[in-house]
């Protein structure tokens, strides 16, 4: 990790833009004002405007990205506090996550194949519902492109938090277990951040779903690739 003025500047820029985006979101509560989405767009536009490459930005961006790991660890606390809810619903939780992981992988692989994209892109699409570090590792293992896998993971996260709440309502999925498992299984950490807005039950079910789908997903990804390719 290098300590330089641009690095401090880019880390600071990210934090300030996020805080402003968060204030905007808390004020208007519109889904499209999701702070991750608006902050990402604002930073991309600034970098493009000043002709700054992504790698230069990451000198500072990486300081912030480094905190994602410990934050994932901290998700164990809300999960622990909701452990009774979890043990009482063990079967429905496990079944929902397993079904969701399989549907997400198989549908992604089949659609990409039907539209005649290269095998490399099909394999990059496969792990998109898993949390970023796992998806990147799975993509590498299968012969996909890890950095593009991260882009698909983020797109899946945004799709989940932007369309997810309306979609769940439309399907009459209105219980905390349905919402939490649905968001965490399909939209990983972004879905879990969204689940915090529903309540502590949804949040811990979603973080559980994110974790278990990472574990289940990395195990079944090679099998899905083997069957459908």
């Amino acid at each position: 990790m290098e300590f330089s003025l641009p690095a401090v500047l880019f880390a600071g820029l990210t934090i300030v833009i996020y805080l402003v985006a968060n204030i905007l979101y808390l004020k208007y509560r519109k889904t499209l004002l999701n702070p991750v989405l608006t902050a990402t767009i604002a930073i991309v536009l600034i970098l493009l405007f000043f002709n700054i490459p992504y790698n230069t930005y990451m000198a500072g961006g990486d300081w912030i990205a480094q905190l994602l790991g410990p934050a994932v660890v901290a998700l164990a606390i809300p999960l622990y506090k909701q452990r009774d809810l979890m043990t009482a619903n063990l079967l429905s939780i496990a079944a929902g996550i397993a079904v969701g992981v399989i549907v997400g992988m198989v549908s992604g692989v089949l659609f990409t194949k039907w539209l005649a994209f290269s095998e490399e892109l099909v394999l990059t699409m496969l792990p998109k519902s898993l949390t970023t570090p796992v998806a990147m590792q799975v993509a590498t293992g299968l012969g996909g492109i890890p950095s593009l896998a991260a882009v698909f993971v983020m797109t899946a996260g945004f799709a989940g938090i932007i369309f997810g709440p309306h979609f769940l309502k439309w399907l009459h999925i209105d219980s905390s277990i349905g919402r939490g498992i649905g968001l965490g299984t399909s939209a990983h950490g972004l879905g879990t951040a969204k689940a915090f807005e529903y309540g502590p039950e949804e949040a811990s079910l979603s973080s559980l779903a994110m974790t278990l789908s990472a574990v289940i997903g990395s195990a079944i990804a090679p099998i899905v690739a083997w069957i459908f390719l």
């Binding site: 934090i15 990402t40 961006g61 912030i64 970023t132 972004l190 915090f196």
Partner: peptide
């Protein structure tokens, strides 16, 4: 938590 995703999404 949402802040820590932003550097990756900018990718």
């Amino acid at each position: 938590l949402p802040l820590f995703f932003i550097p990756a999404t900018v990718g």
